[in-house]
Design a protein around this nucleic acid. Sequence first.
DNA 1: CTAATGAGTGAGTACTCACTCATTTTCTGT
DNA 2: ACAGAAAATGAGTGAGTACTCACTCATTAG
Lengths: 204, 204
Amino acid sequence: MNKETNQITESQQKIIDAAIAIFSEKGYAASSTSQIAKKAGLAEGTIFRYFRTKKELLLSIVGPYTLKVFLPKAISDFEKVFMDDYDSFEDFLRAAFSNRIALVKKNQAVVKIIVQELPFHPEIREQIIELFGKKILPLVETKIVHFQQSGEIIALPVKTVVRLIVTPLVGYVISTYFLFQNTEQNNQEEFESTIQFIVKGLCP
Amino acid sequence: MNKETNQITESQQKIIDAAIAIFSEKGYAASSTSQIAKKAGLAEGTIFRYFRTKKELLLSIVGPYTLKVFLPKAISDFEKVFMDDYDSFEDFLRAAFSNRIALVKKNQAVVKIIVQELPFHPEIREQIIELFGKKILPLVETKIVHFQQSGEIIALPVKTVVRLIVTPLVGYVISTYFLFQNTEQNNQEEFESTIQFIVKGLCP
DNA sequence: CTAATGAGTGAGTACTCACTCATTTTCTGT
DNA sequence: ACAGAAAATGAGTGAGTACTCACTCATTAG
């Protein structure tokens, strides 16, 4: 049918979708390949035609798949935000995170898998560290130093500043999208409060 | 030997210690009872003399054991902190969290298990929600309202304020005790920065 | 119309799992 | 020293695991 079969097939996609659903619900170790096959509407053997092991299936979800397809799209948006010169730290913060949060929301299940399996799989940890350390942090670092020099934010170590920025936002995402489901308007207010909190907290 | 055998026996303690080590390292689902028995230096059957199922063993670690022995000791300290009238929000915050963090540090493995298994076991989730909702939140709530009325912190919804206080501190704990091992002095500085950040962030 | 292909199958394999229970070892009171 | 109780044992069990492979059969190519 389609000649460009070096890309993903329909069955592969079915397997990945089923695996995402089951891994995120039960966790990798408690999920069985028979359950995944059943959910995908395929035979168990078909899984192993495309993924040599169960672990390879996991890594194809949180590895290449996520970090080279889902995230680069995010990073390119991200870089745009970093190119623009925002007049205030507050505007920059809002711009940088509002669409990033939408992205997490859209990929809740995959994000949940990554967070859940992070402690048990060094490969995943390395990939995340690689990504953040080499792609995200340098970008963020220059921006933070810039705002520190302009006197808008406090002169703490960059890592500390990053932590203080990221943790309240992660807390916001967890509480709004994973713990409770609030109204969209309420979420917007919470997001605003969080941004204000960070800006004030980082005042010199 | 000891007559008060309605309490915990030596073998039970060995099993629990071994289970804590293995659950926290590999996760509950990926841990086997044979590994736990081996680590405890006991036969596999002995586990099932004291714990009817593997799950009961898990719940005895994160359930009754933690929430009725380890935490109440923490709560009684906590209540003392809440009785005293601190002159400033900042002093209160420092007093309330500095020893709480020491507690987490001392029970790293158990805390890790709780966090890891939270998404998969409704029983654990309920117990945590019960504990926070009925024991911790009410205490914190009155304190926060007090500081809001004295005009020291911003008049946001109490839940929001709690989230903004807790998330940077959780981030501090994760980054210092679970991700990187820094020097003790460095940790102290990071803790101070975090406290300052919260206090400034919650200014009206 | 026939031959070749390869995605898809599902019973089968070796193995691990949580859990049981008949047996042995250790402890205790007299 | 000894009987009876309690604790500990570890081989055994059936269910379930990840993974394999000989085979089917619709689709395509010659």
